[in-house]
Simulated assay, not measured.
Amino acid sequence: MEQLGFDFGVEPRPLIRVTPAKLALYDDCPRRYRMTYLDRPTPTRTGPWAHNTMGAVVHNALRELFDLPAAERTPERAASLVGKHWRSAGFADSVQVARYSEAARRWVADYVEAGGADVDVVAVERWVSATTGSDPAAPSLIVEGRIDRVDRRDAELVVVDYKTGRRPPENTDAQRSRALALYAVAARRTLRAPCSRVELHHLPTGTVAAAEHTAETLREHVREAEEIATASHTATDRLRQGGDPDRLFPARPAPRCAWCELRPSCPEGREAAPSARPWDLLAPMA
Results as ranks from 00 to 15, higher is better:
Arg153Ser: 00
Val159Cys: 12
Ser177Arg: 05
Lys163Asn: 03
Thr164Glu: 09
Asp173Lys: 01
Val159Thr: 11
Ala155Asn: 11
Glu156Tyr: 03
Lys163Gln: 05
Pro168Trp: 09
Leu182Gly: 01
Pro168Ser: 12
Val159His: 02
Ala193His: 08
Ala187Tyr: 01
Tyr162Asp: 11
Val158Trp: 14
Asn171Ala: 14
Ala179Gly: 13
Arg153Val: 13
Asp161Met: 12
Asp151Phe: 06
Lys163Ala: 02
Lys163Phe: 04
Gln175Trp: 14
Arg178Lys: 10
Asp154Trp: 09
Ala186Lys: 06
Ala187Val: 15
Arg176Ile: 00
Arg166Tyr: 07
Leu191Gln: 04
Arg178Phe: 00
Pro194Tyr: 07
Pro194Cys: 05
Arg176Asp: 15
Thr164Ala: 10
Glu170Asp: 12
Val158Ala: 07
Asp173Thr: 05
Pro169Ala: 00
Glu156His: 05
Cys195Gln: 09
Asp154Cys: 02
Glu156Thr: 10
Ala186Thr: 08
Thr164Gly: 02
Tyr183Cys: 11
Ser177Asn: 07
Ala193Leu: 14
Ser177His: 04
Arg166Ala: 15
Arg189Val: 10
Ser177Gln: 03
Arg152His: 11
Asp161Ser: 14
Val160Arg: 14
Ala184His: 10
Ala187Pro: 05
Ala186Gly: 07
Val150Cys: 12
Ser177Phe: 06
Gln175Arg: 15
Ala155Val: 11
Ala193Trp: 09
Ser177Leu: 01
Pro194Ala: 05
Leu157Glu: 00
Gly165Cys: 05
Ala184Gly: 14
Pro169Asn: 01
Arg153Asp: 04
Thr172Val: 15
Ala174Glu: 06
Arg176Gln: 14
Arg149Asp: 00
Leu157Phe: 14
Leu180Lys: 06
Ser196Thr: 08
Leu191Val: 01
Gly165Gln: 08
Val158Arg: 10
Ala181Lys: 03
Leu180Ile: 01
Gly165Leu: 03
Asp151Arg: 10
Arg189Ser: 14
Thr172Ser: 14
Ala193Val: 04
Gln175Leu: 12
Val158Tyr: 04
Cys195His: 03
Asn171Met: 12
Val158His: 13
Asp151His: 08
Ala187Thr: 15
Pro168Asn: 02
Arg188Glu: 14
Lys163His: 04
Val158Glu: 13
Arg178Pro: 00
Asp173Trp: 01
Ala155His: 13
Val185Lys: 04
Arg188Gly: 00
Arg176Met: 14
Arg178Ile: 11
Ala193Gln: 13
Ala184Pro: 13
Arg167Pro: 01
Asp151Trp: 13
Arg188Asn: 07
Arg149His: 06
Asp151Ile: 09
Val185Arg: 06
Arg166Phe: 05
Arg152Val: 08
Ala174Trp: 06
Ala179Arg: 11
Arg188Val: 09
Gln175His: 13
Val160Cys: 08
